Amino acid sequence: MPKEGHYVNRTGWLRASVLGANDGIVSTASLLVGVIAAGMDHANVVLTGLAGLTAGAFSMAAGEYVSVSAQSDTEAADLERERRALHEDPDYELDELTAHFTDNGVQDALARQVAEQMTEHDALAAHARSELGLWEEGAADPLQAAWTSAVSFAVGAGLPLLGVLVMPTASVPMSLAVVAAMTLLALMGLGAVGAHMGGAPIRPGVLRVLFWGSVAMAVTAGVGRLFGVTMA
């Protein structure tokens, strides 16, 4: 049993989680900032935020399910082609697997021996890894991606929305400041957790999400200001 864990085994659900949470935070915060800057009353701001959370969660789930299903279908098609090739011309496939090892620095005789042993053990798995780069640990799972994205989006979207709920009587500038502060804190946390879970440096991960989140809020606030609302 290996002593070390590998972060690549987490990529399936980690990517969906980070993408969903980041989209939930940024899109909902930007939506809220835009309608607040446009002068919408508190009840409608909350309703807008809830609608954005609900629609976004279902949209993320559907989008992830469809995209990952397409990826899974493509992988399955490639595996079927490889299965047929192994059946129709096993000698060529053995030579191909041997060449893969020699190209990676293994001596010819040893490469042949390894290729033969791997073919006897599980030929399809050996070719899937060497030719297609497909590993069982990284196999696409549409349902996992769908529910992970939906839940993470909803959690992320709830954080800036919470800033609106806790200050129902705040002025426009105060509401904007609270939503922005909640959003930036949430993005900092997301960047740090995502980087840590993926074994990456934390600082670049935090700065990335802060930058793009800030840009999105600034742009939508500007759009809201185009309606000529006085910030008072």
Rank of each mutant, 00 (worst) to 15 (best):
L161G: 00
V45Y: 00
L32G: 00
G189V: 14
A218R: 02
A55K: 01
V106H: 07
E137D: 13
G63K: 01
V106W: 08
P173V: 00
Y92M: 11
T220G: 04
H121R: 13
D108Y: 08
A192S: 15
W135D: 15
P201E: 10
Q71H: 03
V114Q: 05
L86E: 08
A181S: 15
T74P: 04
L53F: 06
Q71M: 06
Y65D: 01
A140P: 08
D141T: 10
S67E: 05
H6C: 09
S130K: 09
G12R: 13
N104E: 13
T54K: 00
E120G: 01
A76C: 02
M174W: 10
L184M: 15
S171H: 03
T74G: 11
R203Q: 09
P142G: 06
S149D: 07
L134Y: 15
V68R: 05
M118Y: 04
V166K: 00
P160H: 01
A111P: 13
M217G: 03
D103M: 08
I25L: 15
F211S: 06
A43L: 11
A85L: 14
W135K: 15
P173H: 01
A77G: 04
E120Q: 11
T102K: 05
W13Y: 13
Q117R: 13
F101K: 07
D89H: 14
S175A: 07
Y65P: 02
W147N: 09
G189C: 14
G138W: 07
F58I: 05
E75S: 10
A126L: 05
V219I: 15
P173Q: 04
E4F: 12
E116V: 06
S30R: 01
I202V: 15
V178H: 05
N104F: 08
A170M: 01
E80K: 11
A216N: 03
W13R: 10
P168S: 03
R84A: 10
R81D: 12
G198A: 15
G138T: 14
M197K: 14
L14G: 09
G12W: 04
G133I: 12
M1V: 07
A123H: 10
A109R: 13
L226W: 12
N44V: 03
P2L: 11
M197N: 10
M231T: 01
A76E: 11
A195G: 11
M188I: 15
A70V: 07
V209P: 01
Q144L: 15
T54N: 10
A126Y: 03
P160T: 08
E137C: 06
A99C: 04
Q117W: 05
G213S: 04
A77Q: 08
G213F: 01
Q71R: 05
G156V: 03
E136Y: 02
A37H: 02
L132I: 14
L184W: 10
V206R: 09
Q107C: 05
G56D: 01
L31V: 02
A37Y: 00
N44Q: 15
R15D: 04
L19S: 09
A181C: 14
A150P: 11
V66T: 07
R83Y: 08
G24D: 03
H42Y: 12
H87A: 14
W147A: 06
H87M: 12
A170L: 06
R203S: 07
G199Y: 09
S149G: 15
T169Y: 08
T28E: 00
